[in-house]
Every structure is written in C-alpha cells, then in structure tokens.
C-alpha cells in the first residue's frame, strides 16, 4: 500500500494548475480549499493511462469535501450544503492556515 500524504480531516487546497491533456480534476474545484473526507485507495494514474502509459506508480485517491459556498460565490442554498469529489494526491497540497 502506497503511503498517503494526507489523512481524513486534513485541510487541503486543490492545485490551481492549468494542466494540458487529460485530467480528472474539474476546473470548478481548482484553487479551492476543502477537507479530506476519506482515503479511497490507490489507483493507476489516469493522466498516464489516457495516453497508453502504465499508470504506475499508483496514486492515492481521496474523497475531498467542500462547502458549496466556498466553490460558488453565488451559491443560493444553505451554508452547510457540501460537495464531495474524488481527487488524486498530486492535485492536492496542504491548505495554508489563514485560508482554512
């Protein structure tokens, strides 16, 4: 089992990168702060598999939770509505304290 960089409860920021090619990190979460909900396991890297690569080494995949109001300025629902999305480890970095 690949060691994981993050644990459930950790505050993370999704990298804001504009990475060319096939990625599974939608634009709307990039640069946003969320929290690790759970570790889903390790999976082959889709950014390599998409071009015929081996997808190795496998990457930890996390279920990351966000407050909807942190994702959309104009969100009209109650403040405790949430969005969860599955993100590979290389798209995540520790959130800076002041942004949490």
């Amino acid at each position: 089992m690949t060691p994981t960089r993050f644990e459930p409860g950790d505050h993370v920021r999704v990298r804001p990168d504009e990475k060319p090619g096939h990625v599974r990190t939608p634009g709307y979460v990039r640069g946003k702060n969320g929290r690790i909900e759970r570790i889903l396991g390790t999976f082959k890297n889709p950014e390599s598999l998409a071009y015929g690569g081996s997808g190795l080494p496998e990457s930890p995949l996390y279920k990351v939770g966000f407050r909807q109001t942190d994702l959309w300025h104009e969100y009209t629902g109650p403040p405790n509505d949430t969005l969860y999305i599955d993100l590979y480890e290389h798209w995540l970095e520790p959130a800076r304290k002041e942004t949490v």
């Binding site: 889709p46 598999l49 998409a50 071009y51 015929g52």
Partner: peptide, 11 residues
C-alpha cells in the same frame, strides 16, 4: 485500450 484513453479521445 483503456477507459482513460476513451475519455481522452472524446475530450
């Protein structure tokens, strides 16, 4: 082929 190649091709 893989699902990821399929997605990349669609994209």
């Amino acid at each position: 082929k893989t699902t990821d190649e399929h997605r990349r091709a669609i994209e």
